[in-house]
C-alpha cells in the first residue's frame, strides 16, 4: 500500500476537525469520523484515526472520552469533540485573536 505523505495526513486531520466543528459542542464517535472520511475520499484505518485523534488532542484542538479499561485490550475511544481552540483553527483565527469582537 502506498504510504501517505505528511500533506495527506494533514488534510485528513483537517477534515476530522471540520467534521467535529459541525457538531460542536456535541461529541461524535470514531465510527462516524471513519464514515465521514470515507465520504470525503480520505479513507483511513482505525489505527490511523486513533493516531489523528490523539494528535489533535495533544495539540489542544480536540478532547476524547475513553471506554472503561479492559485488561489485555487497547482502550477504546468512545467519543471525540472539538475544543474552542479547534473551532478557532477551522475559522482561521490568527494567534492571539480571541474569537470575540466588540
Amino acid at each position: 500500500m502506498k504510504k501517505k505523505t505528511p500533506e495527506v495526513r494533514d488534510i485528513e486531520r483537517g477534515e476530522i476537525l471540520r467534521f467535529l466543528v459541525e457538531f460542536y459542542p456535541d461529541a461524535v464517535t470514531p465510527k462516524m469520523l471513519l464514515y465521514h472520511l470515507d465520504d470525503a475520499a480520505l479513507s483511513v484505518s482505525e489505527e490511523a484515526l486513533r493516531f489523528h485523534i490523539v494528535y489533535l488532542t495533544q495539540k489542544g484542538f480536540a478532547t476524547f472520552e475513553l471506554a472503561p479499561k479492559v485488561v489485555g485490550e487497547e482502550t477504546e475511544i468512545r467519543s471525540v469533540k472539538v475544543t474552542p481552540a479547534g473551532v478557532d483553527f477551522v475559522d482561521r483565527r490568527k494567534k492571539g485573536e480571541v474569537g470575540i469582537r466588540l
Partner: peptide, 12 residues
C-alpha cells in the same frame, strides 16, 4: 456525553 455520541451514530 458518550451515550449521546452513540445515539448520534445510530441516527447517522
Amino acid at each position: 456525553e458518550s451515550t449521546q455520541a452513540r445515539l448520534l451514530e445510530l441516527i447517522d
